[in-house]
């Protein structure tokens, strides 16, 4: 089964959750779904993040009651695993629009669906509705996700994957998306701006990881973006 088929089949199972306003796919699968025809060639992880606004948490829990193909992982109930091993794990992550910083990240305790509410997810704004056959998936606008990925502190392989997600987003972003990104960047404080430029630099000099997009392919685009951002500062 191709990765695209696995991803779309997994999302189809989650349709009741995806139909809730404000819920969107986040993280590494966004560049895959933004590719023409949701081609899903920019694979950096084998799971899918669903972003849950904290104000929609109760609705999401009710919708999960209608999903038989998935159940919570016993050791980590914010992660749902499919009975069919071909389908991807689903990570539910919380978005609280009142937050703005990674240091504000907190846990929303709940017996059915606890959530790690990431401070930086508040940069995500609802973007295009992707429709593939009968599947409808709300995606975030690339600019906000790019900001989130480039502000996330890097640690080990997860950090490298975050930067590869940023690379994938740059590859699928339109000129308008980049304008949007520069606009958000202009509103950040100097520490956050420094972190973004620093992480773009790290991305530019990253070693390729096996079976993942090659950072060398985007080096010139990254360099030009850094120069553009420095002109804003």
């Amino acid at each position: 089964m191709r990765f695209r088929d696995r991803l779309l089949a997994s999302l189809r199972e989650m349709q009741p959750v995806l139909d809730i306003p404000g819920v969107m796919v986040g993280g590494s699968q966004v560049p895959n779904l933004l590719e023409p025809g949701a081609a899903s060639t920019l694979v950096v992880s084998q799971d899918v993040d669903l972003v849950v606004p904290v104000g929609r948490h109760s609705e999401v829990k009710r919708a999960l009651d209608r999903i038989a193909a998935y159940s919570p992982a016993p050791e980590e109930p914010s992660v749902w695993v499919a009975r069919d091993p071909e389908k991807l794990e689903v990570n539910f992550i919380g978005l609280d629009p009142a937050l703005r910083e990674a240091s504000e990240t907190y846990v929303l305790e709940d017996d059915k669906l606890p959530l790690l509410v990431f401070g930086l997810l508040s940069y995500l704004c609802e973007g295009p509705l992707l429709e593939v056959g009968d599947l409808r998936v709300r995606l975030p606008r690339p600019a906000g996700l790019l900001i989130e990925k480039l502000l996330t502190e890097r640690s080990g392989l997860k950090g490298e994957r975050d930067l590869l997600v940023a690379l994938g987003l740059l590859q699928v972003s339109s000129q308008e998306d980049l304008e949007d990104f520069v606009g958000i960047f202009a509103g950040l404080n100097s520490e956050q701006r420094g972190a973004i430029v620093s992480n773009l630099t790290v991305l530019s000099l990253m070693k390729p990881l096996p079976e993942m997009p090659d950072p060398a392919a985007g080096r010139e685009e990254v360099a030009r973006l850094i120069q553009r951002l420095e002109a804003v500062a």
Partner: peptide
């Protein structure tokens, strides 16, 4: 225990954010 694991992750994220602030 799953709450503990989530709290541990949240704590690690907050710590890294503070370190990053210092680095910047």
């Amino acid at each position: 225990s799953s709450f503990e694991s989530l709290h541990a992750r949240a704590g690690a994220i907050r710590s890294r954010a503070l370190v990053r602030r210092w680095e910047m």
